[in-house]
């Protein structure tokens, strides 16, 4: 919420007084976490780069309210330096528990050490860090991205079972260096390498956004005339790519088979409409599990180092059935 407050304050300042000063930042969220029995949880989110992320944010905010946890929410807008700043400010405010989804995997040792020195337990959500020292965080709750990549690969292997023709695959990767991008790529590659007919002819980053997904796919379509399969690391890039494929006069889902990961509502709608062939779910609704963990960690209970979120996969028929009560 604090970001919105800042935005609102600045917007107000713009309209009324001009650039009088910057002293009022974060005025709304003061107070320390130690007083009272209420747990204060500092959470630093990656950003709002996709529908998935938005659902994730909502789940965390709602379940914090239900669990009676005082949530200090901060949006890093996809930048690691913002996130490090947020973590430092959580440490300075002496929150009870820190949770965050790392923007990238590397470069966290220093700030995590600071949290440890301040005796504030850290929980990673959704994305991992590559720190050697696992004592720097209490637990990691989230999906297994390697497994997601594998599920995508397994569907592909089954779909082309018994055929011998070469299958030309193009891949739209997530943000370079991000765990879901690295792992979804690795898991997928691991499964399809068993059969030489599967060939990844091009792989580029689409930054997890629609615009980049569309732009990269446009270039792919011109460079490689015979693409059989598109594997996109999230729904949004896949949705952007669908527009590029349609503009090229091809039928997404038929001429080019599309596999994506996430299963957000827009993606599921496209899947039910036959424009995507298969979606591996990556559930963002980990809020309740996170609040549970935060309470246990605060109480000093032992928690597992790794907690998996429950997830499934969707074919076109399953999407049609699941779509009406899809929350995000």
């Amino acid at each position: 919420m604090s970001r919105k407050w800042t935005a609102a304050l600045l917007a107000g300042a713009l309209a009324l007084t001009g650039p009088a000063g910057c002293g009022g930042e974060d005025a709304g969220s003061g107070g320390s976490g130690s007083g009272g029995g209420k747990i204060t949880l500092g959470f630093s989110q990656v950003g709002a780069e996709s529908g998935w992320r938005t659902a994730n944010t909502k789940s965390i905010q709602e379940s914090a309210a239900t669990a009676g946890i005082d949530l200090k929410f901060s949006d890093a807008q996809g930048k690691q330096e913002n996130q490090i700043k947020a973590l430092r400010s959580f440490i300075a405010q002496r929150v009870d528990v820190i949770a965050f989804s790392p923007v990238v995997e590397s470069g966290w040792d220093t700030v995590l050490k600071e949290a440890k020195d301040a005796d504030i337990p850290v929980i990673l959500t959704d994305r991992a860090v590559d720190s050697q020292d696992t004592s720097l965080y209490k637990s990691f709750i989230g999906s297994d991205f390697v497994l997601e990549g594998k599920k995508a690969g397994e569907w592909l292997v089954k779909e082309y079972e018994g055929k011998t023709d070469t299958v030309n695959i193009v891949e739209l990767q997530g943000t370079p260096g991000a765990a879901p991008a690295n792992d979804r790529k690795a898991g997928f590659a691991d499964v399809i390498k068993a059969d030489p007919k599967f060939k990844v002819i091009a792989s580029q980053t689409g930054q997890f956004t629609r615009t980049d997904g569309k732009e990269v796919m446009e270039a792919f379509l011109k460079t490689y005339p015979d693409i059989d399969v598109l594997y996109a690391h999230n729904d949004d890039m896949g949705l952007g790519a669908i527009e590029a494929i349609e503009a090229a006069g091809k039928k997404p889902g038929t001429d080019i088979k599309i596999i994506t990961v996430d299963a957000v509502k827009d993606g599921m709608t496209a899947l039910a409409g036959g424009k995507i062939n298969y979606i591996v779910e990556c559930s963002p609704l980990l809020g309740p599990q996170l609040m549970d963990l935060a309470k246990k960690v605060k109480a000093g209970e032992q928690v597992p180092q790794r907690v998996l979120t429950e997830e499934t996969t969707f074919t076109q028929e399953q999407a049609k059935a699941a779509l009406p009560d899809r929350k995000y």
Binding site: A8, L10, A11, P19, A48, G51
Partner: peptide, 20 residues
Amino acid sequence: ILMVAGRGIAQLLTDGQIIN
């Protein structure tokens, strides 16, 4: 000033979501 505040205003408008 507007570079920083403007992005905030845009996020305020969209409530931080992607609007389709």
